[in-house]
Design a binder for these strands. Structure first.
Lengths: 193, 193, 193, 193
DNA sequence: CTCTAATCGAGACGGTACGTCGCGTCTTACG
DNA sequence: CGTAAGACGCGACGTACCGTCTCGATTAGAG
C-alpha cells in the first residue's frame, strides 16, 4: 500500500466491473498499437489515449508496457505451449503439429500481432523461457542433441515458422504448414536420422 | 554539409590516425558494455565514457548506438554468411558446417558478446536480412519448403545454436556442434526426408 | 497539444497552487541570478537548481530564459510606462517625473537588478517597444522632432538615467534626480527651446 | 607562444601581406553577416566560410567574435568620439554636431550596420566606455548634472539618434538631424536652462 | 437507498537520456 | 616545416518519455 509507490490495488481478485473494463480497454489498445509499430516506439501515453483512460490509470494495472506485453504473451503462450511441447512427447507429433497450427490459425489476429507486430523477440524469449520450464524434465530420445538445445531449437523454429506463415499475404493451408512444421522443425530434433 | 545535423565528416575515407583510434575505442567500449547488459540499457554517455571520448564525438562517427550495433553486426556477419550459405549449396554441407563453427570458435569473444550479450535479436534480424539478400536467387531443392522460409529457419536455427553453444560453461568441441548443426539445422531444410 | 513540443498546459488560467509556487520560485531565482551576472551567462539549469525545481519544469512555464526576462520586464515596465509617458503629455511633467522616480525607488531592488544586472539592453528594447505602442497616437508639440524619435530618446534617456542612479553607491535623493530627469531628458524633447 | 593556447602570432606588427588580406576578409565577411542578423546568431564558422578562410584561422586573429566586434567598434568609434566629445567642449557645438553627423553620413554603410544590424547594444556600451575614458577629466559646466551622467546621456542619446536616423527609409538631411542632435541631445546637458 | 471506499481523470512534477549546436583547443597531414 | 583543415572535448540547449504524486470527481456495491 503505502510503500512509496503509486496506489496499486490487487486487481487480480477485483470484482469491480470498471476494473475489467479498463483492463480490456488497455489490452485492446495495446494490441492495436502493436499492430502498427514495435514496442519501443509505443508510449504509455499513447496506450492511455487509445484506450481512453487516464495516463496514471495505466500504471494502476501494469508496472510498465514491457510487463504488459509479457503478461499478454505469457497468457497466450500458455495455451500454445502444451500443444507445442506435446509434440516433443512420444505421441503422434504430426497430429500435435496440426493441432498447434490450427490453434494459431484460429487466433490469427492476435498471434499475427504478437509475432509480426514488433513484439516477436519478446515473445520468442518468453516462449523459450516457458518451454524450458515446462520441459525441464523432458529427456531427448537420444544424447546427440542436448535437451535444452532441443527445446530452444524447436521453440525458436516454431516462432519463426509461425511468424513467416502469418506474414504471408496468401497463406498456406493449415495442414500444409503443419507438415512442414513437423518435418522441418520437430522431427529433426526428436527423431534425428 | 550543413544539413541541420551535427558536423559529420566523411570518415570512410579518413586518413587521420585519430579517427581510427577513436572508432576502435568506441567499438571496443561498446562490445565491452554489450557483454554486461542489453543494448537498450546502455547509454551513449556510457559508451563515450568507457571509450574515453567526448559524448558528442560518438555522434560524429555513428548516428546512434543502434546503428553502431548494426554496423558491427553486419560486418561480422558478412564474414560468416558465405560460410553459412555455402551450406545451402550443393557442396559438402558437413564440411561447411565445420568451417562455420570453426570460424565462430576462433572469434569466440566477439561472437559470444554479439549472441549472448543482449544484441542477439538485432543480430538475428540482420542475419536474416543479409541472408535473404544473398540467397535471393537460391532455390530450394524441392517445393516442400519455400525458399524464404528455408533461409529464415536455417539462419534462425544457426543463431540459436551458436548462442546456446557459446553460452555453455563447458562447450562442446567444434566437430560435435558442427555435426548437430548439420543434422538438426541444415539437413532438415535442404535435404527433407 | 501535441505540437511537437514539451507538454505545456495553459498556466495562465491554472488554479493549481503548485503552479504559482513554481512560477514564483523561478522568478525569484532568476532575479537572484541576474543580480550576479548577465543573462547569457546564466543557464537554465542554474535557474532550475536555484529555484529547487526540475530542469524540465522550467520549460513547462517559459519557452526560454530570454522569454522569461521579457515577461518579467514587460510586466514591470507596464507599471512604469504610464508614468513615463504621462510625462510627455500636457500635464505637469515635473510632478510626473517625481512620481516615476519615486516608483522606481520604491522597487529599487527589482529595478536595480533589471537595469544594472545585465538585462539592461533587453529591458531598454522592451521599454522602447512598449512606449512606441502606447504612444502611437502621441503627437509632439512641434514638428522639429519626429514623434517616434522623441519617444526613443525619452525612453532611452530614462533607462540610462535610472540605471546610472541605481548604480551609485551613494544615490541622489529622489527629488534631485527627478529634477535632472525632467530638465535633461524630458523637457528638451517636449519643450524644445 | 606555448602558453597552452592556440598559436597566435603578434599580427599587429605583421608585415605579411596575407595577414592583411585575411584580416580584411574577416572584417568584410563579419560586417556582411551583421547586416543580416544579430551577433549571437552568427557563428564563427559562418564568418570563416564567408571570408573563405579556415575555421581555426579566425582565432589566430581574434579571440572571439565578440572581441572582433569590439575591435571594429572601438576603431570606428575612436574616429567619432572626438567629434562627439568636442561637442561637450566650449566650442561651437552646433558646428561640431554637424561635423559628426556628416562623418556618420559619409560612412553610412558601416555605421548603418553597426547601429541597426544587431550590434547596437555592444556598440553603445563601447561608446559609453570610451567616452567615459576620454572625458574623465571633463567637467560639466555646472553641478546640476554629474559629469559621468552627462557623458552617458549624451553618448546614449547620440547612438539612439543615429540609429533612428540610419534606420529611416527616407532620412532627414544632415543639417536637420544635426540641429535636432544639438538641441535635443547636447544642449540640454551642457547648457541646462 | 444511501454512503463509503474503491476507482478513475487530469496533470504538475523530478528525472534521465536524447541528439544538436557552437565554442575554442589541439593535432595532423599536406604543400 | 609551417599552416590550413578539421577532429575533438566540453557543456548548454530544448525535447521526449518515464514513473510518482496529489487532487477531486465519479460510481459501484455493501450495509
Amino acid at each position: 500500500m503505502s510503500q512509496g509507490k503509486i496506489y496499486r490495488a490487487d486487481y487480480s481478485t477485483a470484482k469491480d466491473a470498471r476494473v475489467h473494463q479498463t483492463r480490456a480497454a488497455i489490452r485492446k489498445a495495446f494490441l492495436n498499437l502493436l499492430d502498427q509499430k514495435p514496442l519501443d516506439q509505443i508510449t504509455v501515453r499513447e496506450i492511455a489515449t487509445e484506450a481512453a483512460i487516464g495516463y496514471t490509470t495505466f500504471f494502476r494495472h501494469h508496472p510498465s508496457k514491457e510487463e504488459l506485453l509479457n503478461e499478454i504473451a505469457a497468457a497466450e503462450i500458455q495455451n500454445l505451449i502444451e500443444l507445442a511441447l506435446s509434440v516433443l512427447g512420444p505421441n503422434d507429433s504430426r497430429e500435435a503439429a496440426l493441432a498447434m497450427c490450427g490453434y494459431v490459425a484460429e487466433h490469427r489476429a492476435l498471434w499475427s500481432t504478437l509475432l509480426t507486430g514488433g513484439a516477436a523477440s519478446v515473445l520468442r524469449d518468453e516462449f523459450v523461457r516457458l518451454s524450458l520450464q515446462v520441459a525441464a524434465a523432458w529427456q531427448g530420445s537420444d544424447e546427440t542433441i542436448p535437451a535444452e538445445l532441443g527445446v530452444i531449437l524447436v521453440t525458436s523454429g516454431t516462432i519463426e515458422l509461425l511468424a513467416w506463415w502469418l506474414k504471408q499475404k496468401d497463406p498456406m493451408p493449415v495442414d500444409k504448414i503443419a507438415a512442414i512444421f513437423d518435418s522441418a522443425v520437430v522431427s529433426p530434433i526428436i527423431r534425428p536420422s
